[in-house]
């Protein structure tokens, strides 16, 4: 059975339709990438799945249960969320931030227990950020902050993690660090990930690392295509969706399997 299933989902802001007829499934240890141009509804879809936006029609099932019937704490034990841009407020320490991932396991009138602190240590260790533990998180770089957000989501101990453009605004190296962290988590813990991304090569990166990866190409409110990265993210589809001339490149690393990436060459037509 799929961990997460979205069935015939429709969503509109007042009377402006944003999402139409969205269907997909996410199984254990899989990555599902939402890919598409700005404003195509990726983040909206994530918010519908999270339950922060009320869908107009259709269903979102989490472990077989309709998310609308789940209390926030129940939902938060099933799926964790890594925001695209976290708005920093007070200079909490990194440890205090990661500890907030335990809110779903903490009663309304109680504070976190020893077990929660242990989960925090474990999450920070897995992501490799223990050295930042006592640092005010407002002083972190963009890449470090994103790792902290992933650690917080990991402390929630959920089977599903939802990431909204986790590498937005990151430098060359940190983008790769985040992707490698995701691959490592999926491999080691069997986590399932639903991710919105602007970069087709993220999907290829996961696929190249032997993670079962599905891509949905979103365009004007719906899924234009769903399937394996090399099928969906073709030169033709880049042309159709973005008006961009692109080339698929492939190479062999260490004489092993074929690695694929897609490279943008130039924009076509009117800008």
């Amino acid at each position: 059975m799929a961990l997460l299933e979205v069935k015939n989902l429709f969503f509109s802001y007042s009377d402006q339709p944003v999402l139409e007829e969205v269907n997909f499934k996410l199984g254990k240890g899989e990555i599902f990438c939402l890919f598409g141009p700005n404003g195509c509804g990726k983040s909206t879809l994530l918010e519908c799945v999270l339950g922060t936006l009320k869908i107009s029609r259709g269903y979102v099932y989490l472990n077989g249960r309709d998310v609308r019937n789940l209390r926030p704490a129940e939902a938060a034990r099933q799926m964790a969320y890594v925001p695209q841009l976290h708005q920093k407020t007070f200079p909490y320490t990194v440890k205090e931030i990661v500890l907030m991932g335990r809110a779903a396991y903490t009663g309304m009138f109680t504070s976190p227990s020893e077990e929660d602190y242990a989960a925090v240590e474990e999450a920070m260790q897995k992501i490799g950020i223990q050295r930042l533990s006592e640092k005010p998180y407002t002083q972190l770089s963009g890449g470090e902050l994103q790792l902290v957000m992933i650690a917080r989501a990991l402390a929630q101990k959920t089977p599903v993690m939802i990431m909204d453009e986790p590498t937005a605004h990151l430098d060359f190296r940190h983008e790769l660090i985040i992707l490698e962290t995701v691959v490592q988590l999926v491999r080691e813990t069997g986590l399932s990930i639903l991710m919105a991304t602007h970069f087709p090569n993220h999907a290829f990166f996961f696929d190249n690392n032997d993670i079962p990866t599905t891509v949905a190409l979103m365009n004007s409110r719906r899924f234009a295509a769903v399937g394996r990265p090399e099928e969906v993210l073709s030169e033709q589809s880049m042309q159709r969706t973005f008006n961009v001339e692109a080339r698929m490149v492939s190479y062999y690393r260490e004489g092993k399997k074929e690695f694929r990436q897609i490279v943008a060459v130039r924009t076509n037509g009117l800008r």
């Binding site: 922060t52 926030p72 704490a73 939902a75 976290h86 407020t89 205090e96 809110a103 309304m108």
Partner: peptide
Amino acid sequence: AVRWQINVLSMGDREARSLGINTSVA
């Protein structure tokens, strides 16, 4: 009694909810 939950609420509505807090009640 709810002092620790104020931490989580200070993450903003959407994040607090995704972390498992019933934001309107809290």
